[in-house]
C-alpha cells in the first residue's frame, strides 16, 4: 500500500449537471442538453461516454452526442428502454442529474487528419456518431471527403432528422440514407445499410471507416468495408456494453480480457482480430 490515499476522491461521485434543453427526436428518443452547475466543460473526445445518474433510480452509460467543438454544454441523445433512461425522459428542463466521465478512448481523430472518412450508422448508432460527424464538420478543412451512410428501420424511425437535413445540404458532406422497410412516403433506397456501399466509390488506402449501430450490423459492415479494400486497422467500431462503473473495476463491460470502458468503446477490426476478442462481434 504505497499509494497516497489522502488525496483520493471517490471514483463514484457524480458532478451535478442541469438539463438546459430537451428536444423530442422520435417516439422513444430525446436529445438532452446539459450544463454543469460549476460551468465547467465536460472536456470529452468524440466517441466517449458518460455515466448519467438519476438518484434513487440508478446510473447508466450513455454515449455523448455532441461534438467537443460545442462549448459550454454537451448533449446526450437517449432512447427510453430501461429504468434510468425512462426516468430521464420524465424529467423537465431545469432538472438536475449526476454525470461522471467522460470515459473511454473515443475515436482517434488525430489519425483522421487529411483522410477520407466513411461513417456508417445503423438506427441510434447515429447518436454517438453525431459527436464525430459534427466534430469533422466543424473542422472541415482538416479532413478529406466525408461520406455518411445512415440506415433506419422505417422512414418514420429516422433519427435526428433536422441534423440529417443540415448535413444533406452541405456541399462537402455526402449523406446517403436507406430504410429497411419502405412506405409510400419514402422515395429513397430500401434495404439494410450495407445496400448503400454499392453507391459509393472510395480510395481505400486513404479512407477510415467508422461504424456504430446494433451488434448484428457489424459483421456485415466490416465485410463491405473489406470488399472496398479498406485495411482492417482502419475499420473502426464502437462496441457498446453495460459499462456500470466506467472505471475498469466492475467487470460488466468485459469483452474477453478487455474492459470496454477503459480500452474501448472504439476498437479497430485489426485489434479485435489481434487480441482474439471473440466475444466482440
Amino acid at each position: 500500500m504505497t499509494k497516497n490515499l489522502s488525496e483520493g476522491k471517490s471514483l463514484y461521485l457524480p458532478r451535478v449537471a442541469e438539463i438546459t434543453s430537451i428536444e423530442t427526436i422520435a417516439q422513444k428518443e430525446k436529445l438532452f442538453e446539459f450544463k454543469f452547475q460549476d460551468s465547467k466543460e465536460l472536456g470529452h473526445k468524440p466517441g466517449q461516454f458518460v455515466e448519467i445518474s438519476i438518484f434513487g433510480i440508478g446510473e447508466m452509460p450513455i454515449s455523448i452526442s455532441s461534438s467537443p467543438t460545442k462549448k459550454g454544454a454537451f448533449e446526450l441523445a437517449v432512447r427510453a428502454v430501461g429504468d434510468v433512461t425512462n426516468a430521464l425522459h420524465r424529467l423537465s428542463k431545469g432538472a438536475t442529474v449526476g454525470i461522471r466521465g467522460p470515459f473511454g478512448n473515443g475515436f482517434p481523430v488525430d489519425e483522421f487528419t487529411g483522410k477520407d472518412l466513411l461513417f456508417i450508422a445503423g438506427g441510434i448508432g447515429l447518436f454517438p456518431l453525431r459527436s464525430l460527424i459534427n466534430y469533422v464538420v466543424d473542422n472541415r478543412k482538416n479532413f478529406g471527403r466525408l461520406i455518411i451512410l445512415s440506415g433506419s428501420k422505417t422512414a418514420d424511425e429516422r433519427m435526428l432528422v433536422n441534423e440529417l437535413e443540415r448535413w444533406q445540404v452541405m456541399e462537402d458532406v455526402e449523406l446517403l440514407e436507406t430504410v429497411d422497410i419502405g412506405n409510400e412516403k419514402w422515395g429513397g433506397t430500401i434495404g439494410p445499410v450495407t445496400t448503400l456501399f454499392s453507391q459509393i466509390e472510395i480510395i481505400p488506402q486513404n479512407t477510415f471507416a467508422v461504424t456504430v449501430g446494433p451488434p448484428v450490423m457489424y459483421k456485415f459492415v466490416i465485410g463491405e468495408c473489406q470488399k472496398k479494400g479498406i485495411p482492417d486497422e482502419r475499420i473502426l467500431m464502437s462496441l457498446e456494453r453495460r459499462m456500470k462503473c466506467g472505471v475498469g473495476k466492475c467487470g460488466h463491460c468485459q469483452i474477453n480480457g478487455v474492459y470496454v470502458c477503459q480500452e474501448g468503446p472504439v476498437f479497430s477490426y485489426a485489434r479485435i482480430k489481434k487480441d482474439k476478442l471473440t466475444e466482440a462481434l
Binding site: 500500500m1 483520493g8 471514483l11 473495476k249 477503459q262
Partner: peptide, 8 residues
C-alpha cells in the same frame, strides 16, 4: 488506472 478509494 483508477484508485478505488472505497477499497483502498
Amino acid at each position: 488506472d483508477n484508485l478505488d478509494t472505497n477499497y483502498l
